[in-house]
Amino acid sequence: MSNPENILEVKDLKVHYPVKTGILQRVTDSVKAVDGVTFEVPRGKTVGLVGESGSGKTTTGRAIVKLAPITSGTIWYNGEDIGNLGKKPFFPYRKKIQMIFQDPFNSLNPRMRISRIIAEPLDIHFKDMSPSDKMDRVVELLKKVGLDESHVNRYPHEFSGGQRQRIGIARALAVEPEFMVCDEPVSALDVSVQAQIVNLLKDLQDELGLSYLFIAHDLAVIEHISDDVLVMTNGKIVEQASAEDIYENPQHDYTRKLLSAVPKL
């Protein structure tokens, strides 16, 4: 069915949330958050997913890792159909596919020290690892994302947004994933910091051979990191092209609208 060069293939994915009304909570309607989306992510490449707020980007990303309920459609990961797997059979993919979250102020538990935050996925997927090996791994990961060993015993509130996003990346990298869903990882950051994080993700991709689904709402960030770009609105993908083509030769009105919102340098 699927092309072995693609790490991820999504076909006709739909996520509909029921709308319940009245005291009896009867289902009267549905929100079509994702409404028939088809795309693929080639191994080792970055696919950008762009669209305005509410267009269904986050829901698409979450459906891949079963954080959003799939109404219909298929998801192939490395040629395996993972869209219909139960909780247990899906468990190995919770190691292979990681997610980076939009809001760095919300994605780290405020009551946990950095060492515990980064070691949490190790506790789950590397049960046999000794505590001292885990600690070494945490320190190694912190250095890898550009943070200092001395940060291990601090709490998230002691860090800036950019540093927290680095911690989130270290946590995602801890279990040696192959594929990462990056859900607007830089939207909440200052422009100067955005570039640093995007470059970090690029360097990590080169070093570790990762594949990304990179979600953003502005084309400037997407163009910088993506090989291919998907433009999404109202739960549907309206345009799909390489990063240059999108910039040079936008086909869809909606894409042009997005482009005009990008500040000209």
Partner: peptide, 9 residues
């Protein structure tokens, strides 16, 4: 952070 925990299994 709860979604992150769910996502890591």
């Amino acid at each position: 952070f709860v979604l992150a925990a769910e996502n890591m299994g």
